[in-house]
């Protein structure tokens, strides 16, 4: 039975169901329970935005509050994953990976290959990404390109509650390290989510809208901006197809190629900074694989090459908008 669920609740449900199913799943992070050692309520926070709220009552000590020591606890989650546990470690904001990146990219990402295929590292690192929260330069970045660059890491960034649940369950069951990116401005976004457990496979993009004139590739919050743009353009008779990548590593380039073979036009939307972005990556690969299908130069719609500004007046200009996307689509349609 499907109900309308927010992405926040869908993530909570995925964790709950996997913890119930598999006793080796543990969840750790800063204040993911909250109130540890404090005089007041147990489970006082359930994470900084309440995503893990209520899980402590059901699963007790398998939820572990950590000290403010990301290198130590993210590293411990990674180590434990090589020794029989399936930890889900929350990094709160992906921006904080600066503190513990060695454990992620020199350790977790490398084990399988460097040890000649003998190691499994089934760890999931959940973290918030993205701008729009007025949280300024160190709590708002879309650092997906940095983790996607590293062979050995899998990178997930859902755009809705249904995908979030299925992709998180897949992440927990997956035997490789997964960086699970949750857009903080999508937590309240609701969609139909089945009650039962299910997985969404990695490396399969979702065609969220069909259209014959132009292909818009996006992930996370940008899928919604792309939909707004497509709505507006449809009124003018321009039909856009939207490809939601869902996972950035592995990436489903085949679906993009197939779509562009139909439409002949490519617009890549990415909330990340432009240099070495997912948008740049998809554009390059597509140009190589389907150059002959292109009727116009591919367009990239990204944040500017700046840190995320604090002032709402600037942050709203920073985040790619539906208007930016409309303009980019129009550029590909110009004679």
């Amino acid at each position: 039975m499907a109900r309308n669920l927010s992405m926040k609740d869908a993530i909570n449900e995925a964790l709950d169901q996997e913890m119930a199913r598999d006793p080796t799943v543990i969840v750790m992070g800063e204040d993911i329970v909250g109130g540890s050692g404090s005089p007041g309520e147990d489970d006082a926070w359930g994470g900084v935005l309440g995503v893990t709220k209520g899980l402590y009552a059901k699963h007790g000590d398998r939820l572990i509050d950590t000290p403010l020591s990301e290198s130590a606890y993210i590293g411990a989650a990674i180590g434990a994953s090589t020794c029989g546990l399936r930890p889900v470690a929350e990094l709160m904001f992906l921006d904080f990976m600066g503190v513990c990146f060695d454990q992620i990219f020199n350790q977790a990402a490398k084990f399988r290959y460097m040890f000649g295929g003998k190691a499994e590292t089934p760890v999931t690192i959940r973290a918030m990404v993205g701008a729009g929260f007025r949280a300024a330069a160190q709590h708002s970045q879309m650092l997906t390109p940095i983790v996607t660059h590293i062979p050995g890491l899998k990178v997930v960034c859902p755009s809705n509650a249904y995908d979030a649940k299925g992709l998180l369950i897949q992440s927990i069951r997956d035997n490789d390290p997964v960086i699970f990116c949750e857009h903080k401005n999508l937590y309240a976004h609701e969609s139909d989510v089945p009650e039962e457990s299910y997985t969404v496979p990695f490396g399969e993009a979702n065609i969220v809208r069909e259209g014959a004139d132009a292909t818009i590739v996006a992930y996370g919050l940008m899928v919604h901006r792309a939909s707004e743009a497509a709505e507006a353009l449809a009124k003018e008779g321009i039909q856009c197809e939207i490809v939601d990548l869902r996972t950035l590593s592995p990436i489903d380039i085949d679906s993009v190629v197939e779509s562009v073979e139909n439409t002949g036009r490519l617009i890549c939307v990415d909330e990340a900074n432009p240099r070495c972005s997912i948008a740049a990556d998809v554009t390059a690969t597509l140009s190589q694989e389907a150059f002959g299908s292109l009727k116009a130069a591919p367009q990239l719609v990204t944040a500017p090459h700046t840190p995320v500004p604090f002032s709402p007046a600037l942050e709203d200009l920073y985040i790619p908008s539906a208007e930016h996307i409309v303009d980019a689509v129009r550029k590909t349609m110009a004679p």
Partner: peptide, 24 residues
């Protein structure tokens, strides 16, 4: 200039190297 906000106020002329959003 509005780019930092509460968590990033700095004034190097006063020897204030900056508030910080990253612990430690």
């Amino acid at each position: 200039r509005g780019k930092g906000g509460s968590m990033h106020i700095a004034d190097l002329s006063k020897g204030m190297m900056g508030a910080n959003g990253i612990l430690g």
